[in-house]
Simulated scan of single mutants.
Amino acid sequence: MNDTLAWQCASLLLAYPDEEQRSHLELVGDVAARLPDRLGRPLTDTATALGARPLQGLQEEYVATFDTRRRCSLFLTYFLHGDTRKRGTALLRFRQTYLRSGHALDDSELPDHLAVVLEYAATVDPEQGRRLLLDHRAGLEVLRLALRDLGSPWAGAVAAVSATLPTLRGDERDAVRRLAAEGPPEEEVGLSPYGQAGPVDLPLPTVLSTVPSGGAR
C-alpha cells in the first residue's frame, strides 16, 4: 500500500504542470504525510516546491528540464536506446505489458513516460509495474541523480520512486555509472510506431482520492 501510494503521488507530481495538477497538490501533501519518512518527505518536498512557483515559470522549467537534458528524460526507454529503432521495439513491449493487464493507452501517451508507468503500477498491476521500473532501473537512477544535482523541484518525486525499489547491487551500480558517464545513444533512425514526445497530462490518480484517513501506514 505504501509503495502504490508513493507511485500515485509521484505520477501526479511528474506530469506536466497545469491548473488541475496544482489543485491536487494539497491532497498529495496529505497522503505523503502519512507515508514512511523515506517516501513521504521527498514527495512533500516536491509538492511544496511546485506549489510555491508561478505556474507559467514552472511549465517553462519543466520543458527545459525534461525535454532538453538527455540525462533528465522522463521516457524510460530513452536511457537504453536513445532515439534509435530499438527504442520503438521497447515501447511496443511496454504497451503489450499494459494490454496483458487489460489496460489500454490512448495514442497521445507514450507508454514509457515515467508518470504513465507509475500510474499503471499504482492502479492496474503493481507487480508488472514494479518489473518495468526494475528493468529500467539504471535510467531511473541516472534521472534521480541528474535532478538532484540540478536542485530540481522534481528531484524528490523520483527519489521517492527509487526508495520503493531494492538497494542497487554491484552490477547495477556499475550500469548506472556507465550510463551517467556516457548518456543515452544519440543515433536518430526513427521510432515507428512511436515517434511522439512532449508533455503528458494525466487525470487525478484514483487511489489518492479514495485513501481513508490514517490508512497509508
Rank of each mutant, 00 (worst) to 15 (best):
L55H: 01
P153I: 00
L191Q: 04
T123D: 15
P17W: 05
T123K: 06
T89L: 13
P166H: 11
T77W: 00
R144N: 15
D83I: 10
P111Q: 06
E182H: 11
H24W: 11
L140G: 02
N2I: 06
G29L: 04
A175S: 14
G129R: 01
L145M: 14
V31W: 00
L25S: 03
E61H: 13
R53M: 09
Q196P: 00
L105I: 04
A216G: 05
L99N: 11
M1L: 12
P212D: 03
V116K: 08
R95F: 04
L25F: 05
N2S: 12
L147D: 01
R95D: 15
R177Q: 15
A33S: 14
D30W: 11
V207A: 15
E188R: 15
E172G: 10
H24V: 05
E119M: 13
G102T: 04
L143W: 08
E26S: 14
D149F: 10
A90H: 06
D125N: 12
L80T: 15
L80F: 10
R95C: 08
T84E: 09
S162F: 11
L145W: 14
A175Y: 05
R169S: 15
Y120I: 07
Q196D: 12
A138Y: 10
L114E: 13
S73R: 09
G214R: 01
A15M: 11
R69S: 15
A160F: 07
A175Q: 14
H81V: 08
P111S: 03
L27D: 04
T84S: 14
Y78H: 15
L143Y: 09
A175N: 10
G190Q: 06
L191I: 00
P153Y: 01
L132I: 04
G215M: 00
A15L: 01
A160R: 04
A146Q: 10
A49L: 03
E26W: 07
G88K: 00
Y194T: 00
L35Q: 03
G82W: 07
K86Q: 11
L55A: 05
R178C: 14
D174Y: 08
Y16E: 08
L76I: 03
H113N: 11
A49K: 04
D107H: 12
L55C: 02
Y16S: 06
P153V: 00
S101D: 02
A160V: 06
T206P: 05
G183H: 05
S152I: 01
T46E: 02
Y98H: 10
S101M: 02
L13S: 01
P153E: 00
D37P: 10
G129P: 03
G215T: 01
Q56L: 13
D135L: 07
L58Q: 08
Y16V: 07
L80W: 07
P54G: 08
V158C: 13
K86S: 10
E60K: 09
P199W: 10
E20D: 13
A6M: 09
H24N: 10
E186S: 12
S23T: 12
V200K: 04
Y16A: 09
D135V: 03
S152P: 03
A49I: 02
C9R: 00
W154S: 04
Q56Y: 10
E20Q: 14
E119L: 15
R177Y: 07
A32V: 03
T68C: 09
E182W: 05
P184S: 07
Q96H: 09
A90K: 04
L208G: 00
P36I: 08
M1Q: 11
